[in-house]
Nucleic acid binder design. Structure first.
Lengths: 221, 221
DNA sequence: AAAACCCTTACGGAATTCCGTAAGGGCATG
DNA sequence: CATGCCCTTACGGAATTCCGTAAGGGTTTT
């Protein structure tokens, strides 16, 4: 089993549960942090001292407080760590059970496991740790269909960009100008209308308001 | 200190943290549930057997799964319990740190404590339990300004109703018809426009899309 | 009782969104 | 090279939203 594991989660109560879980699995050396920046520092420090961690278990969303953070989210931390060392094992343990978020994480940074906090969260986490230890991937059943045969595969960064601008109160005309300024193509009003129309059909939305409400609900933006 | 406490939270990992916290405070008899319905049954059973609980610590949102539930949320459970016995002590322990939600809970059902899950969640929970034991109210600092001097006091049920319909994709014309059908006044298109205009100004929204995005973010709908 | 005020409703015009049609360019296939 | 396909862009008209003005009814103030 893993010897040295770092847990990063801003909710103290969750940390404690994961801690118990790891202890049960026989992990001797467990360190906890409540900030992504602290997690990063701990990992680097351990590397320097030749006593590196074997595994990171991290949440995705961290509440912001007075402390200025270099890594505001678990995702940014993961991106950096996987960039430095793709082999370093990382398990995400998050309440986020929305397919979109999970999918992008599993694909972009190739995580080792994605576990949803939930009624069976700790059970699944135990399975995930064992699987990852045996160099297997693990995904919670709730999002396991996120990787293959995703219905919403055709929605790309451009769409999300558009939806974000829309939700920030800009008119389609203004968005057209913004995209022209940033040399993002397509940028014509007509194309934007067309793309939003596709999104409306895709999400069965009656109008732009409905569309933004829906994609906010599913966590796309 | 309290003798018998019931914890209700669908996330197993959180349950464990709260459990430790209560044990440290010297609570002997602790029961956990992961469903609101189970919590209700436990409480009623204890009452019947003349060994009632002294306190309930509950989350607000519970993920739905295959099991059909009478109480889908912590809020519905709280409403029922406080209706049956206003003196029964209840502490909410939730990630929900949005003022609106906290405000309505503290006002409508007069809760005994509202604690936000967060970095200091367990510390605050300990304080809350002690306070409630001494018949005092407790509110996490994050939402403590939710009860008094609320900036958004003028937003009423009608406004929220309007915003919900809007976010559900209905045009202002359709909403006008719906309100006429339900005999809700004002119902004219003009009045609806006027009201939404006020809300736009209030929330500094550029248009209806922006407005819906904003009120979704702050948890008003 | 008159005046002031607030709320609901109506109306009209400008701006924006919605939606269909169509022209032009790039790219692959035959 | 021609053809077809897809994408971008343009255009036009209907529907909807946005915004100001104003009339009518009810209540409070003076």
């Amino acid at each position: 089993m893993f010897q040295k594991v770092l847990i990063s989660d801003d909710l103290g109560s969750i940390n404690q549960g994961v801690l118990n879980c790891l202890e049960t699995l026989g992990v001797k050396d467990i360190v906890q942090t409540q900030y992504c920046d602290d997690a990063y520092l701990q990992l680097k420090k351990a590397d320097r001292e030749q006593v590196p961690f074997d595994l990171l278990i991290t949440d995705l969303s961290f509440k912001t407080d007075h402390r200025e953070q270099k890594f505001p989210s678990g995702e940014s931390l993961i991106a950096q760590l996987k960039k430095e060392n793709p082999c370093f094992k990382i398990i995400v343990y998050s309440v986020e059970d929305r397919l979109q978020k999970a999918r992008s994480l599993l694909q972009e940074h190739h995580l080792d496991a994605y576990v949803c906090k939930g009624r069976k969260g700790l059970t699944e986490l135990t399975q995930a740790i064992t699987a990852v230890y045996n160099n297997q991937q693990y995904t919670s059943p709730q999002v396991s269909n996120a990787t293959h045969a995703n219905l919403q595969l055709e929605i790309d960064e451009y769409d999300i960009n558009l939806l974000k601008r829309l939700s920030n109160g800009y008119s389609q005309d203004e968005i057209s100008q913004q995209l022209k300024d940033k040399h993002i193509s397509p940028s014509s009003l007509s194309s934007i209308e067309k793309r939003l129309n596709k999104l409306r059909i895709h999400f069965k939305a009656n109008n732009a308001i409905h569309l933004v409400a829906i994609v906010k609900d599913i966590g796309l933006i």
